[in-house]
Amino acid sequence: MKRYIVMVLGVQLLLGAGMVPGAPSSLVAFTPQIRSLIASGDPARGKDKAAGCVSCHGAQGIAENAAFPSLAGQRADYLYKQLRDYKDEKRVNPLMAAFAQPLNEEDMADIAAWYASQPLPPAKPADDDLGAATTLVRRGDGKRLIPACAACHAANGRGQAVAVPALAGQNAAHLGQTLQAYKRGTRANDVYSVMRNIARALSGEEIAQLAKYYESLGE
C-alpha cells in the first residue's frame, strides 16, 4: 500500500513537471514542412497577433521586468518551438499555455517572425568578474562533458539553426532562472536532455555568471 502511494505520488509529480515517462520532451520536429512554415511567417501580421504579449514582453519585445524574457531578435525557429511546446504542455507554464492555446500554426510562425525581425536588446555592461563564465562560453569543460556555450549559441550569442536560441542581451534574471529550471528538471522541453545535462553540471555561481555574461552582449 505504501509503495502504491509513493508510486502514485511519483507519477503525479512527473505529470506536474511535464515529464510523463515515455513521452517525448517536445512534439516539434523540424521537418522541411515545418521549416517552410516558419520561414513563411509574416512580421506585420505577427505584430498585430502579438498585441496580447506587450504587457510582459514589451512593445518591441524588450521586457521591462527582468524575470520575463526579452523576445526581440530571438530566432524564429526557437520562438515557434516554444509556442508549440507551451501549447502541447511540454514546456509547463500555465500563463503561457493560456496564451498559446488559441494560436494555430500560422499564428505562431507570424508571431515568431515579428520578434525575430526586431533588433536584440541593448547590451548591459557587467562590472562583476565574469572570468569563469568567459571560460565556459569559450572553452567549456571537457571533464564535466560541458561543451563551450559558443559552440551552439555562437560566439556573439545569437544562436543558430535549428532552434538554438539567441542569448545576447537576454535579461540575466530570466536566463539564470531558465538554467536553474533545466538543472532541477522543471524545464524539460530540450530534446535528448541536451541542456538539462549541461545545467546539471553547472554550479549556482557559474549559472549566475553566465546569465550576466550574456546580458552584457546584446545589440
Binding site: 515517462p21 515515455g22 517525448p24 520532451s25 517536445s26 512534439l27 520536429a29 523540424f30 521537418t31 522541411p32 530534446v191 535528448y192 536532455s193
Partner: peptide, 17 residues
C-alpha cells in the same frame, strides 16, 4: 530513419535509449 523527427520515433525515443 527521419532524423528531424528522431525523438518522435519508437526506437530512438528518449526513454528507449
Amino acid at each position: 530513419i527521419d532524423s528531424a523527427s528522431l525523438h518522435l520515433s519508437k526506437e530512438f525515443a528518449e526513454d528507449n535509449l
